[in-house]
Computed example of a mutant assay.
Amino acid sequence: MPRRFVFAFAAAAALLGPAAAEAAKPPEVTVMTRNLFLGADLAPAINAPDIPTAIDGAGTVWNELQSTKFPERAAPLAREIKASGADLVGLQEVALWRKQTPSDGGAKPISPLAGATPATAVEFDFLALLQSELKKAGAKYKVAVVQNEFEAELPVDADHDDATGTGPLASFGADFDARLTMRDVILVRTGSKVKVGKARTGHYKTRYEPSVGGIKIPVDRGWTSVEAKVGTRAFRFLNTHLEAFGDPKIREAQAKELTKGPLKTSEQVILVGDLNSGDAQDHEPEQPGDELAFKALTKFGFKNNGARQSCCFKSLFDPAGVFDHTVDHVLSKPGLKTVKASVTGHDASERTPSGLWPSDHGGVVSRVRLR
Rank of each mutant, 00 (worst) to 15 (best):
M1A: 13
V6Y: 13
F7A: 12
F7M: 07
F9R: 12
A10R: 11
A11L: 13
L16T: 09
G17S: 10
A21L: 14
A23S: 12
P27M: 01
M32N: 08
T33A: 14
T33M: 03
R34L: 14
L38H: 08
D41N: 15
A43Y: 09
P44G: 10
P49H: 04
D50Q: 05
I51V: 14
G59Q: 10
G59V: 06
V61W: 08
W62R: 06
S67K: 11
A75H: 08
A75E: 14
P76N: 02
L77I: 15
L77P: 08
E80W: 09
S84A: 09
D87T: 03
G90H: 10
E93D: 14
V94T: 14
P102W: 03
G105V: 03
A107W: 15
P109Y: 07
L113F: 08
P118R: 11
A119V: 02
V122S: 06
E123Q: 13
D125T: 00
L127P: 13
K135D: 15
V143D: 05
E149L: 13
F150L: 10
F150T: 15
E153S: 07
A158C: 02
D159E: 12
H160M: 04
A163R: 14
T166Q: 13
P168H: 11
A170S: 14
F172M: 11
A174Q: 06
D177A: 04
D184I: 08
V185S: 06
I186H: 08
V188F: 03
K193I: 00
A199T: 13
G202M: 06
Y208M: 02
Y208R: 03
G214W: 10
K216S: 15
V219K: 01
D220L: 12
W223T: 01
S225G: 11
V226K: 08
E227Q: 12
V230P: 01
F235H: 05
F237M: 10
T240M: 05
H241K: 07
L242V: 02
A244H: 11
G246D: 11
G246M: 05
D247I: 04
K249Q: 13
K249P: 00
G261P: 02
L263S: 01
K264C: 00
T265S: 15
Q268V: 14
I270K: 09
I270F: 10
L271W: 03
V272M: 07
A280E: 15
P285A: 09
P288D: 12
D290Q: 14
E291G: 05
E291C: 03
L297Y: 12
K303L: 05
G306S: 15
G306E: 06
R308W: 07
R308T: 12
Q309P: 00
D318F: 07
V322W: 06
V327R: 04
H329E: 07
P334L: 09
P334V: 07
P334Q: 12
L336E: 04
S342L: 03
V343P: 01
H346I: 02
R351N: 07
S359N: 10
V364A: 01
V364K: 02
V365Q: 04
V365G: 02
S366Q: 10
R367A: 04
